[in-house]
């Protein structure tokens, strides 16, 4: 059933990470990704690996959920690895037909693979431990300063959370309309590209109409419940930094410092003879 797919793939559990302020998680994820690209050395990746392992342990999310996202980027990763492996000039190690694998090639390929894998795993942990709503809340508050530049931050966040609520419903609806048109002999599979696009009309028109009808209903329901924009609104989950959040920021800073120091001063590569 399409409805069983939770968007943003939140995994309900009770952990320190789940309770953390979404702003902390957003900032930390961003910092983690940046650190992977900024500090590229064996020793700093060692630090990143430990940090990631600790965070995964803390999240209480089963490991297979965290690696789920990797399937989606498998092809991308394969291409990156192959390109780096064969096309990096340097000291040859192995020759395969017309291509030469170099020491440098192995190094960059391995680093790229690690970066991509950690990037996906890191952001997966964030989305797995943060409800989509918290995420939008975090963005709304975290980006609140943009209001000064007349960016409708509240409205954007509200739109995002409504989208999150309605995507599964519209997916269900797509499935239903598709079946209904198939019962009338519609064919969504065969034909060339233009033919296929044309065949989508009986699906897309009802879908749009339904989306508009729902939007209309929802707007009325929101108005009836006193919604009149972000002005004068209170929050049932107001974002306030707690002690753990502050601690988390300190830990994050320490992590970044450690990454910087190891990449600079601990040269495992030279010891190993790269």
């Amino acid at each position: 059933m399409l409805r069983d797919i939770t968007l943003g793939q939140y995994y309900p559990a009770s952990s320190v990470l789940h309770r953390l302020d979404p702003r902390v998680k957003l900032v930390a994820t961003l910092a983690f990704i940046v650190s992977l690209f900024a500090f590229g050395s064996v020793s700093s990746y060692f630090v990143a690996t430990i940090a990631l392992a600790v965070v995964i342990k803390l999240s209480r999310v089963p490991f297979r959920f965290i690696t789920k996202g990797l399937k989606a980027i498998f092809i991308l990763m394969l291409i990156t690895v192959i390109f780096n492996l064969f096309l990096t000039p340097g000291t040859p190690v192995l020759e395969v037909w017309k291509f030469t694998i170099t020491m440098e090639g192995i190094r960059t390929a391995a680093f790229m693979a690690i970066r991509l894998i950690y990037l996906i795993m890191g952001s997966s942990i964030m989305t797995l431990t943060t409800t989509p709503n918290d995420l939008t809340d975090g963005m709304e508050k975290g980006l609140g300063f943009l209001k000064v530049f007349h960016v409708p931050v509240h409205e954007i966040a509200m739109m995002m959370s409504i989208a999150l609520r309605f995507i599964p419903i519209l997916m269900d609806e797509t499935d239903k309309i598709m079946k209904a048109q198939m019962a009338r002999g519609a064919d969504f599979e065969s034909g060339n590209l233009i033919q296929k696009a044309k065949n989508m009309v009986p699906l897309l028109v009802p879908l749009f109409i339904s989306a508009f009808r729902r939007a209309n209903d929802l707007a009325m329901a929101m108005e009836a419940r006193g919604y009149h924009g972000g002005e004068g609104r209170t929050k049932m989950h107001p974002l306030e930094y707690k002690k753990t959040d502050k601690t988390a920021y300190v830990i994050l800073l320490m992590y970044l410092l450690l990454m910087f120091l190891t990449s600079r001063y601990v040269k495992i590569e030279t010891w190993l003879g790269f």
């Binding site: 959370s161 419903i169 729902r214 919604y227 049932m236």
Partner: peptide, 25 residues
């Protein structure tokens, strides 16, 4: 309203129930 799907705003039950009071400040 009539259509239950089109009047629930929150993605979690308690958040939806809190929507009206939030609007009231």
């Amino acid at each position: 309203f009539q259509n239950p799907d089109n009047q629930i705003i929150g993605t979690i039950v308690d958040e939806d129930v809190g929507f009206g009071p939030e609007n009231m400040g």
